[in-house]
Design a protein around this nucleic acid. Sequence first.
RNA 1: GCGAGAGUGGCGGAACGGUAGACGCAGUCGACUCAAAAUCGACCGGCGCAAGUCUUGGGGGUUCGAGUCCCCCCUCUCGCACCA
Length: 874
Amino acid sequence: MSSDHLPAEAVPATDTPRYDFRAAEPRWQKAWNDAACFRVEDVPTDGRPKYYVLEMFPYPSGKIHMGHVRNYTLGDVVARFKRACGFSVMHPMGWDAFGLPAENAARERGIHPGKWTWDNIAAMRTELKRMGLSIDWAREFATCDPAYYGHQQALFLDMLRAGLVERRYAFVNWDPVDGTVLANEQVIEGRGWRSGALVEKKRLSTWVMRITDDAPDLLAALDEMPRWPERVRLMQANWIGRSEGARLRFAVADPAGIDSVEVYTTRPDTLFGMSFLAIAAEHPLAAQVAMTNPGAAAFIADVQSKGTSEAVLEALEKKGFPTGVDVINPFTGLRHPVWIANFVLMEYGTGALFGCPAHDQRDLDFARKYDLPVIPVVLPPGADPQTFGITDKPFDGEGVAYQSAFLDGLGQRDAKAAAIAEITRRGIGQGVVNWRLRDWGVSRQRYWGCPIPIIHCETCGVVPVPKSDLPLILPDDVTFYRPGNPLDHHPTWKHVACPSCGKAAMRETDTFDTFVDSSWYFARFCSPQAEAPVVRAAADHWLPVDQYIGGIEHAILHLLYARYFTRAMKATGHLSASEPFAGLFTQGMVTHESYKSQDGAWLYPEEVVRRADGTMVHKDTGRDVVVGRIEAMSKSKRNTIDPANIIARYGADTARWFILSDNPPERDIEWTEAGVLGAYRFTQRLYRLAENATFEAGDTPAEFGPAARALRRLTHRTIAAMTEAVELLAFNVAVARVYEFANGFAEADKAADQPGLAWARFEALDAMAVLIAPMMPHLAEEIGQMLRPGTTNLVAQAAWPVADPDLTAAEAFTIAIQVMGKLRTTIDVAPDAVEDDVLARAEAEPNVAKALEGKRIVKRIYVKNRIVNFVVAG
RNA sequence: GCGAGAGUGGCGGAACGGUAGACGCAGUCGACUCAAAAUCGACCGGCGCAAGUCUUGGGGGUUCGAGUCCCCCCUCUCGCACCA
């Protein structure tokens, strides 16, 4: 045990702990392993219903953290519960093993990324196994293993052939610190999601997955996913971003080359309020103007150098440059200037828009800055058309069109329809649906990723690596002391003969975005050793995942990509399912107090000690410590607790029990030493209760004394309540029921001997063992052994108990007696009590009679077994 | 700005429209102990000696009855945000 360096006062002081988890936990882990309790077949034939539980697989950073403990405990409770309920449960584990930290380690410490990763996997596997998770370890794989990523390459080639993937020259988000391309989804407030560096625009050749083709289906299917959190579905819907509007062409007034500009608009009804047309810096018309206008060229260069990120930083200041070109408004025939503007995105719509300052904030800001006309064409309800005007706020609400010729008097909806009809009639455009979602660029200029299996030949162009040559393996001998992609610097790897013509050719040196790796691992788990990427029969049996569990931070990126990739695998004949995850649960974070020394340095919880008065002091220096906010555990704030230490000190069951007990799992949980100690004490208490109890197995006795009956009722009510709570993932409530059960059992333990009591105790403990097994599996086995010494049956394989309805029904009800909704007293009644009798008794209660005095009863409300309410007058 | 969610004792939180505060943590008192820890027992929202009375962010409403349903407001958290 490595607890020697831990503060002595934190070590649980119990005279002689009866339950020796240090011996028990490894013993039961071995027993489960020996009995292969958690193994399932790729294609099972036993006829049991399947249930696939999956937690988001970990990145092998080196150690497990509390977020992992929470994630895998939640999943394990579900897996063990479903298994006990008779399901054939697949619960696998793997490693999301490609990614930048491995390369950083290589640069900083001279370790090869592969060695670093595999060593981390080994260390974390050991830690995870100590948690006692019911995982089918035979299914384990790492995405950095050619045996995995080779199949990924094959999938990619299939998708390429099917037209789901294409090569594109495009402006990409370039992270100058990581030296790689980022997907839109990976740019947060203009910065790289990992490096935090300002993202630049760069034109590169990249591989793109055509996720936008599936945008309509990805959006529509969200409505058919009742077991996903509403919040996540909304986030995805917003991200996909469907909008309805129109495309229309504006004729250029004095054409010199380009003779029209097409815009996208969601407000065709405001066309009469147009005062300018704005185009993106990358727009072809801008390029044409720049050829003869140095000012325009300079402006374009300025916008492009700063990119979108700089704009965000500059408090979104709108800037434009007049091109001198005019366009003609098809509805009014008026001429309007074309501006190049820094806020127009080439990637959205058509890269051009018409400005209607009266009804759009951004257009209004722009118009005010450059002194362009502001013409209101929608009248707010109740406003006077003679006096209505726009000052600093546009009117973007629902109103009636005016000063708009044939649209006058129409509401927004009708005006839009009429405008689109007119645009269509004139053949200058049509109504369209537009999407915010961008295609998914998957090329990354990185070494530690899955190589993209493509060869570039001067004669043949883009040539796929023949499938017989897969897996295309990463070379091991790379160096990291130069910036950029080590694969590109490798002396020989990229030089290869063209598979088609045999001439010298070059390998693609980009690797896949690691989100590709995690977009199909759930499918690979179904047949992890297969020769093909997936065995159709296995995947069709197990998919979709019935319960997927992970952090909310993956609400968009990972989950959207995985949904798309599943569709792409279906389109290429690898799967039948369209949706990978039927049920999704997003867990809350694990938080902890943070501590700072007086000179402002963050301190680890191990470095501080709580004084009797609750203030904190630095252990070594004795100086006061500033207690900071309670926030998500992070290395930078040093407010982390190492799960390995907790498991060593208190055992896996304690860690599992605590992380389940305090909070609903979707909320953040604060890790506290006191809470853990409480959980630890409860493991000991349960053990003692079972150990000290007098119980007796055997046939159901014919007779039960009052205490025995009470205990039996508690047992069966607990079974019913636990079943419901676990089913709903309300684990904190399930924990509360176990506490109640234990308290009630302790009560019954003290009762005088009576018929059936010893048997009722056996029944209670027998149920207890199975009920707690999902949460505290090792302790459950210990109790199982006490009940049946020497048995080789494992609680892990026991069936979930079934509540006897005769025993869950209450023997009597305490019902509330109210007068005008105010509680006056309670009375106990039999379940089959007659209404009139209950009412009469209630009315006769002294407190009730007092409240009724001098009043006339107008109405008597009676809800069986619940409540009586007298409505009175006077 | 737009969208979503949440406000209940000292704390985490329970509560099919039906006795608000289950259960845990912390705390108080007692037993055991030379003492402490552990353990066991009692208490544990406010005011009140008590009978009572007030109490689920604030205000209104629906209802015999509202933490729960409806409307308005306040606060906090999260997500998105030059999207035309």
